[in-house]
């Protein structure tokens, strides 16, 4: 199993995907939460707009991304925008190299997930005691310093939960890969994260449940190790929350 190059490449795909999607989603969700939290006028409007994509399925997002924004034709939105700046159209999904398809996949997931994590961060921010900020203001702390020494440490429990969720969800990525990259019923040999690999190994023409289950066990071990290590690093449970 571990010698199977297709299995190893699925792990590499997951790592590459996670290295990008986890920090990006984290930063954007936190940023959105901070902006929304400080806003008085129209706060619920902005919150709703960022949260609305949570109601959409990956299939619907994949459809819009694949057939409209990043469709290879000139009237696809991304290519139309490029055209206004005089740039050439890019075949987003039909080439393996350069791997533009990553941009398509990552932005679709960002759009779907940012609102969800923003809500978690907002809840965390609202739990921070205002007296901490008052004390900081008396000490003359402003802007970045307040964020660095009050908001961020106070959000540690939320941040840990969000990071773990992001990692587990990246690990389970399937829907957008399958729907964006598969055409005419065939999936390209590259960009197969673990679940796509398992799907084609266990349920494809091979019906190899043994290999499928073995792969699943290895993947469980990996995710368990990562969860423990991450918990240690971020000192999860330190404060009982």
């Amino acid at each position: 199993m571990l010698r199977d190059p297709a299995f190893r490449s699925s792990l590499v795909t997951f790592l590459a995907f996670a290295v990008f999607i986890v920090p990006t989603t984290f930063v954007i969700s936190l940023g959105a939460a901070l902006l929304v939290a400080r806003t008085r006028v129209m706060q619920s409007f902005f919150r709703s707009v960022f949260f609305l994509p949570t109601a959409c399925s990956y299939v619907v997002a994949a459809l819009v991304w694949k057939m409209s924004i990043f469709s290879g034709i000139r009237s696809g939105l991304a290519n139309a925008v490029l055209g206004w700046f005089g740039a050439d159209s890019i075949p987003w999904l039909s080439l393996a190299d350069p791997p533009w398809y990553w941009l398509v996949i990552v932005t679709a997931r960002l759009w779907l997930q940012v609102g969800f994590y923003m809500i978690l961060f907002l809840a965390g921010i609202q739990r921070i005691s205002p007296t901490l900020y008052e004390a900081a203001a008396i000490d003359g702390a402003e802007g970045w310093k307040v964020f660095r020494h009050i908001t961020l440490p106070q959000l540690r429990a939320t941040s840990t939960a969000v990071l773990l969720l992001l990692l587990i969800n990246a690990f389970q990525a399937f829907d957008e890969f399958y729907n964006i990259l598969s055409t005419f019923g065939t999936y390209p040999p590259y960009a197969r994260p673990p679940l796509v690999y398992l799907y084609y190994t266990a349920l494809g023409s091979g019906q190899d449940f043994g290999h499928g289950s073995a792969g699943a066990v290895i993947l469980t071990l990996i995710i368990a190790i990562v969860a423990v290590v991450q918990g240690r690093i971020l000192r999860l449970g330190d404060r009982g929350d």
């Binding site: 690990f171 389970q172 679940l195 398992l198 499928g212 289950s213 699943a216 993947l219 995710i223 368990a224």
Partner: peptide, 11 residues
């Protein structure tokens, strides 16, 4: 809860 759905879907 610690076992992700990705792992249980084949069984």
């Amino acid at each position: 809860l610690l076992i992700p759905a990705a792992v249980t879907f084949v069984p």
